[in-house]
Design a protein around this nucleic acid. Structure first.
Lengths: 257, 257
DNA sequence: CGGCATTTTGAAAGCTGTCAAACCCTGTGG
DNA sequence: CCACAGGGTTTGACAGCTTTCAAAATGCCG
């Protein structure tokens, strides 16, 4: 299937997105095709590298729920998410699904060194991404060691996160899983300069369940129990207010930081 | 704690190791300190790179059950496993453990870009490794882009394996988990030129359980059930003969390859 | 051959999953 | 502006798989 098939123009991205509230004020977009300077990887890049990156990037917008890459499809592109939330997932033939991660602005997508993608990526919300043709991207890697080292560090961090997730999936109770998940979202939001206490849940219960290795019912019950114990409230199904983040920490089962 | 604390000379490595049966006959060891040429990463290295790698390597042997690196400890070294089996694990404060992976000869260990190790590594069997001081290793990376690219590819593959494992932990039944595990071991042995049908299990049931997110009892029962269904036999607790590998494939829940 | 750790087996409990239905939001259309 | 439709979420009852706890069996090693 042609790669162009993946690009769909979204109906206008909904309500004033929270990314507008990012604290470090937005630098002017230096690239006509793609706001490369906002990619997290850029922090360690030099101007020449940035320009090269911009030169091969094209901007893509995708509607909520659309598929960005299909598991098993030829890995022709690398993306960097600039707006919205993406979920990565793998499926068993009978339909059971495991979400292996959620991506937020700044995250890379499709950074694989295999012929084909190993997972499916779908837009949870309306999404904007920078797209880089793989061969150009790899050519760039060879020219700019900085970039390569940075990617290695990113991959290493992702591997670490994956190991934490294995611990969660293999050994935590449903309540610990949900508590861990909420805190992860809160921390991630804080890192991105977004409001971190009334947390926004861009994904639905089924996504959360498939991320935590649970069912929607169990997720719902775990939230209810946390609510009953006074740890949080649910102003709306997609918002969680953490009343006692410290107490929640203890319920994750993890070491306290 | 000083890094030297980690190095312990093993009592002679036990019985004639199976690695002696590796099919591609061993090249002569080109390095007095460490058989770098046998590292899996070497396949894509140039002679000059190999020599540099050898120059900073020192050989380390570790007794079975000894700890090689501790989670949280300063990440001072990078290792490459040359002989034996290593387990990587993370623990929750109350003692629950998740094994995030088993390492076999050729695998890297301690390849992180953080201050400290994110997991504990322990020798399952007697083990030999090449040790590289981190700072020297990183200096080498900067000089040899080949090496860097190779590591990026390794990290990318590990990430993929981690995602498969998340699918297993989050969505597979105990039987599917055990079937997947056995086939993984068999395939890995085959890739290394080792006997792949009467599989050797260097790790005990507790390790298998902690890798699959189960208990030893459940692992045992799953094996029993597979045995009862004529899929395998257990010549000894640490050996599994696969009688119908194809049928086992179907029980993994995965797509058939 | 005996001691000990590992593995297996058994019975019972518990947590999470399944199935079904009610409820609630959200967005639409009158 | 309100009623309605529909999907998503919550709740309930029950079943089932895995865990727990305990004890027997097995295999390994001195």
């Amino acid at each position: 299937m042609p790669p162009d098939k993946l690009i769909m123009t979204s109906s206008q991205v909904g309500r004033g997105t929270e990314t507008d509230t990012i604290r470090p004020p937005r630098p002017r977009n230096p690239c006509h095709a793609c706001d490369v300077r906002e990619m997290s990887v850029c922090s360690s890049l030099e101007p020449a590298e940035l320009d090269r990156l911009s030169a091969i990037a094209s901007k893509v917008t995708v509607d909520a729920r659309a598929t960005i890459i299909y598991e098993g499809e030829e890995a022709d592109n690398v993306f960097n998410l600039t707006l919205g939330t993406v979920r990565l997932s793998k499926m068993l033939p009978d339909g059971r699904r495991q979400i292996t991660g959620f991506l937020f602005p700044g995250d890379f997508l499709g950074l694989v060194f295999t012929e084909t993608y190993g997972y499916t990526a779908e837009a949870v919300t309306a999404v904007s991404l920078c797209r880089f043709p793989r061969w150009k991207f790899e050519a760039l890697l060879s020219k700019f060691p900085h970039l390569e080292k940075r990617l290695l560090s990113i991959a290493s961090n992702e591997l670490m996160a994956a190991q934490d997730q294995m611990l969660l999936l293999g050994r935590k109770s449903s309540q610990e899983k949900v508590a861990s998940f909420l805190l992860m979202l809160s921390r991630r939001a804080a890192r991105h300069g977004l409001p971190d206490n009334p947390i926004d849940l861009p994904m639905n219960r089924a996504d959360i369940a498939d991320y935590l290795g649970l069912t929607t019912e169990t997720v719902s019950r775990a939230l209810k129990r946390l609510h009953k114990n006074g740890l949080l409230t649910l102003p709306s199904p997609s918002q969680v207010a953490l009343l006692q983040p410290e107490a929640l920490e203890e319920l994750t089962g993890d070491d306290l930081p």
